[in-house]
Write a protein that binds this DNA or RNA. Sequence first.
DNA 1: AGAAATTCTTATCTTAAGTTAACGTTTTGA
DNA 2: TCAAAACGTTAACTTAAGATAAGAATTTCT
Lengths: 202, 202
Amino acid sequence: MDALTSAQLAALRKGMEPYVVFNEAEWIVFIQQIGLQTFKKKQLFAEAGKVCSHVGFVLKGSVRYYHIKDGADITSYFSFENEYVSSYTSFLTGEPALNYIEALEPSQIIVISKKNMELMLNNPMLAYKMERFGRLIAEHYLICYEERLSSFITQTPEERYLKLLQNGREILQRMPQHYIANFLGITPVSLSRIRKRILVEK
Amino acid sequence: MDALTSAQLAALRKGMEPYVVFNEAEWIVFIQQIGLQTFKKKQLFAEAGKVCSHVGFVLKGSVRYYHIKDGADITSYFSFENEYVSSYTSFLTGEPALNYIEALEPSQIIVISKKNMELMLNNPMLAYKMERFGRLIAEHYLICYEERLSSFITQTPEERYLKLLQNGREILQRMPQHYIANFLGITPVSLSRIRKRILVEK
DNA sequence: AGAAATTCTTATCTTAAGTTAACGTTTTGA
DNA sequence: TCAAAACGTTAACTTAAGATAAGAATTTCT
């Protein structure tokens, strides 16, 4: 766990701004509770079967969430730069995580342990803003999840792919196709067929 | 908007307990910001195309979330007694909702308007606990959504139905089958076939 | 540089879901 | 109470996705 450079701290502060703005005194206390961790490609941030007792903020790089089902690796989500990363259900409930999270490339991730998070939630100086931060972050992801859920109920795989073409630039550009296929809830073979179908139709 | 009876207030207080415990003074201020609304069957709680500027807590009854796609009505979710109800994305973002929410039976729902919610978030007496309340509620739904999302990515419709058989008693008993089918991401015809398949296999 | 692994496409075959329509049953509402 | 609407199942047909395997192209790693 390394110390953070001032540039890294500035990036974090900026990334948090939409959710919470600390004054100087609060910020000093806050940054004492966080650490920076460097991940090699494929290094695990969280592991199925183990409790995920930390949340992260991706400063550089990207991560992939996946399960193992019947021996097969199924990608369910990604986090990119300036996004949060955690096996959040496990973090919140203390139950073992169901999924793995691995770095897709060499990555720098700011890490907050559950213990330190709780210290801050119980520290009168930070409690209010941390509750607010937690609320807004959770709400942010709630909105993402709701939209994604609704796409599984109301759209076909092809429609989901077309939507991703419109507003999923980052995923499309940086991810191998079979990860994208899983993310859409289909097999890589099926995605390949959908892509062909779309080409022919045009 | 009616006043609440003391029994109704007690139910609400109990329902909020896992998330927030008010002292008497706080409670008195809190209950001034809320109202009770009675819904007839099929009466709308929220409407696609309109901003949903309120959240509810179902005291009695149940509601159904649905979209209209190509003229067809597609059920995406339910809320039952002692659960929260809102077109939450719209409530949070102020954008028009994409879905409808209707009462499935005569229902009593405690309603908090966005305006009053903001009053409370800005009232020093309640702010901290309301932030906490908001955080925990959002986290609660986050966990539900994450599990449901993961089921769309890792499971077949049949597996999703079998899981619902195990731990979805309330939905199965109270909902018509075609609502359940939508909820699982399939058509009613397909659910009927899955049910038959399961019977024959046994 | 070269072997191994990964990625994507394609083909074949199987399986299951979507669509539409029909029919009997149940529920609803005027 | 009675007609209309809603509901669940079934059937026939169409369409698309899953499984498996093969092959070419690319990337990775030593």
